[in-house]
Nucleic acid binder design. Structure first.
Lengths: 205, 205
DNA sequence: ATTATCTATAGATCTATAGATAATGC
DNA sequence: ATTATCTATAGATCTATAGATAATGC
């Protein structure tokens, strides 16, 4: 949880968590709309329903807010995809199902994922590192699925490096829907996109 | 050429072109290092070797500089890949060769391509549109190659939508090397990356 | 004379904090 | 009393331009 990582003078821990949630909920749409740099701390405080002074009781700088926003988005993506792993399905279709689930999450959270692509650079190194680790963790879900299917013989043999790269490819092809959406959505529905990309990933069969 | 699109009071056209090239050459490394918003117009003018006053004789606003920078980068990418098309090779290897050439351009221009991903949002709509059109033009190169190979029977039949999406995938998997480089380059050399991705794209054969 | 460049600054922000006020809980 | 919130603002920028100066070409 973010709450532990950013210092605050406020004692009541549950209040800190609540206010920070308010801050994130206020900030994300603003960052999506105007970008990090053009969004002011006053706007965020206003949208969250308190004053600029109070805002700074819960964060130490504007960058903290961006980090909390990125972290919350990644948490939601993880949660959206995570329950796919729960199904201990070993069928080859398990991969297609996981891809579908993940791509639908990317579709639903298109603006949010795009925002992370655009603003990660604005994070201080320590926060950026954490955000990139989250990205790896999400890719890791696909590494697991692929490895399982390969070892059970549902997918052709691949070495670890090939598996890892395939997992990155799946991650990125999901993101592609978000950062090329301005083009893709004019030519493909999300279902068409998923169908085509699944075929592409599984080897044009 | 950019030169025609941005108004200026300066008469001598060749001077305008030269100064704008200076501006772009000065701005790109600064944008890469600090991002668009944290780079000041003064820094750019200074790095270009003239004053802030002169800078504004050649651009009407800071965003113009970003647009010129993105445009110059895309021109270089196009040029780097374009000469692949010149070879009217119809062998199946033509695709592998084109992928290789393109991925090497992405490798060489890693920082530049990443910068475009991060800063396109900061462009005014009219400039953003042009930058995205450039992106489509580059993808178009792969559409052409794929279409040619399909129609000559070197690649299995695919409908137009599948071809177009495959071309986008190639473009984006090249970009992936730039925006996941912090991870990928620790695990794969660019040659390994190209080898794996070529196999992935051509269908895991 | 005309054109290009420079210096100095107007004007507009925006982040982060200090100090004052309001709300809470023992 | 202690804790949380608010108001007001210090301090630091930064973009873009106006007006003065230097360079160029007929």
């Amino acid at each position: 949880m973010i709450t532990q990582e950013i210092p605050t003078q406020v004692k009541h821990a549950e209040l800190v968590a609540r206010r920070r949630r308010q801050i994130v909920d206020a900030a994300v749409p603003l960052f999506i709309k105007s970008g990090f740099h053009k969004t002011t701390t006053r706007q965020i405080a206003g949208a969250a329903g308190f004053s600029i002074g109070s805002l700074y009781e819960y964060v130490s700088c504007k960058e903290d807010i961006l980090y909390m926003a990125c972290d919350a988005i990644h948490a939601e993506v993880k949660q959206g995809v995570g329950h796919v792993l729960a199904r201990t399905d070993r069928a080859r279709d398990a991969l297609a199902a996981a891809i579908r689930e993940y791509f639908l999450v990317c579709h639903r959270m298109s603006d949010h994922i795009l925002m992370i692509y655009q603003e990660t650079q604005s994070l201080p190194p320590q926060w950026r590192k954490k955000v990139l680790e989250n990205e790896i963790a999400i890719t890791g879900i696909f590494v697991d699925i692929l490895a399982r299917l390969v070892s059970s013989g549902e997918l052709p043999r691949m070495n670890d490096k090939a598996i890892e790269l395939a997992a990155h490819n799946i991650s990125v092809l999901g993101h592609m829907w978000t950062f090329r959406r301005w083009f893709l959505s004019r030519h493909y529905s999300i279902d068409e996109y998923i169908a085509h990309q699944t075929r592409f990933i599984l080897g044009h069969k």
